[in-house]
């Protein structure tokens, strides 16, 4: 996978295909064909992978030892989502991510990716860059 996906093709795609964004004023994520996403959302996916979230929440976010994020992201506010990551829920098995720089630097991107999955706009867990 090419990591050097530039912003400009992403923006072009956005203008050509404004799809997948549910009602928000600002685009939280952009998605084409269900799995081609903007650079930030892609970064969210990579963060998800690096932090090995799939080991508890499932490769498709459908829940395993940890809850389904497809469901949870319908309930949690963005702030609650962030708090859960920063503080963790250690007794339930959710790590404290507050000290993990890669996760902390990408909270918004991670939220965008998971929200897109939860909304059903991103139809495949394994996303690709839009410019490919």
């Amino acid at each position: 996978m090419n990591r050097r996906n530039t912003v400009i093709p992403g923006l072009l795609c956005l203008m050509l295909l404004s799809v997948g964004v549910a009602k928000a004023d600002e685009a939280l994520y952009q998605v084409k064909d269900g799995y081609k996403v903007d650079a930030n959302t892609l970064q969210g996916f990579r963060t998800w992978r690096q932090a090995a979230c799939d080991r508890c929440h499932g490769a498709n976010q459908e829940g395993m030892v940890g809850p389904s994020l497809i469901d949870s992201l319908k309930i949690l506010t963005k702030q609650q989502f962030k708090t859960t990551l920063i503080e963790g829920r250690p007794d339930k098995g959710m790590p404290i991510w507050g000290e993990n720089k890669a996760v902390m630097d990408n909270l918004d991107n991670l939220y965008a990716y998971l929200k897109g999955r939860s909304d059903g706009a991103i139809t495949k867990a394994h996303v690709q860059p839009m410019d490919q």
Binding site: Q50, A51, R55, E99, A102, H126
Partner: peptide, 20 residues
């Protein structure tokens, strides 16, 4: 099995592959 590059950070997950 899909491997991917991971960075090592002490005390953080160091898995580097997605499986189904």
């Amino acid at each position: 099995y899909e491997p991917f590059k991971v960075e090592y950070t002490a005390g953080q997950p160091y898995v580097g592959a997605t499986l189904s």
